[in-house]
Amino acid sequence: MDMVNWPRVGCGAAIFNAGGQILLARRKRDPEAGHWGILGGKVEWGETVEDTVVREIEEEAGVKIRLTGLACLVDQIADDGSSHWVNAVYRADIVDGEPKVMEPEALEDMGWYDLDNLPGPLTRSTEEFLKTTT
């Protein structure tokens, strides 16, 4: 099988503030451009999934995090078969910094949202994570 046809591995972190709000960002790039979701990215060759989450959150939001556990795994297969991602979603706490958009070429906006008043549309990984909170 050609490596191009293998699933890609992504990951992200669901981060909540003291008020119970979740940190979400609006994506500028595909997959899911224009959707709101948890922060994260793709796993690079030789990098662990957990190291990737920590690195990606710092790159995207300028904060250091501590992972508190794996929340869910998401198979994200495009309806047309053009892509397949396996995304690990962790729970995490911020240990240093205040989140802000650090990659304006990739993210349009970022903010804290109440679970009963989320922006939309949401990314598939965010939707799947939210199912674990009910």
Score class of each variant (00 low, 15 high):
T68E: 07
V49W: 00
I77Q: 08
V74N: 09
D80Q: 12
H35P: 04
K64F: 04
F16A: 07
V53L: 07
L39E: 07
G37A: 09
T48V: 01
I65Y: 01
I77H: 05
E47V: 15
I22C: 06
L70V: 13
P31L: 10
I57Q: 02
G19M: 04
V53G: 13
G40D: 03
T48A: 03
E60D: 14
G40K: 01
G62F: 02
L67R: 01
E59D: 13
C72E: 12
I77R: 09
L24D: 12
A71Q: 03
R66W: 01
I65Q: 06
C72K: 06
T48C: 00
V43K: 08
A18V: 12
P31W: 03
V43M: 01
N17I: 13
A33I: 11
D79M: 03
A78L: 03
V43P: 00
S82F: 01
Q21E: 15
I65M: 02
A33K: 14
L67G: 09
L73M: 09
D80G: 14
G69H: 08
Q76F: 02
V54T: 14
S82D: 05
S82R: 07
F16D: 02
T52E: 04
W45I: 09
D79K: 06
S83E: 14
W36H: 10
R55H: 09
V74K: 03
V54F: 00
R55A: 11
L73D: 05
G37S: 08
Q76W: 03
V74G: 07
H84C: 12
A18G: 07
R66F: 06
E50S: 12
K28F: 04
Q21F: 02
V54R: 06
R27I: 08
G37L: 04
G20Y: 06
G41C: 07
I22D: 04
G19P: 00
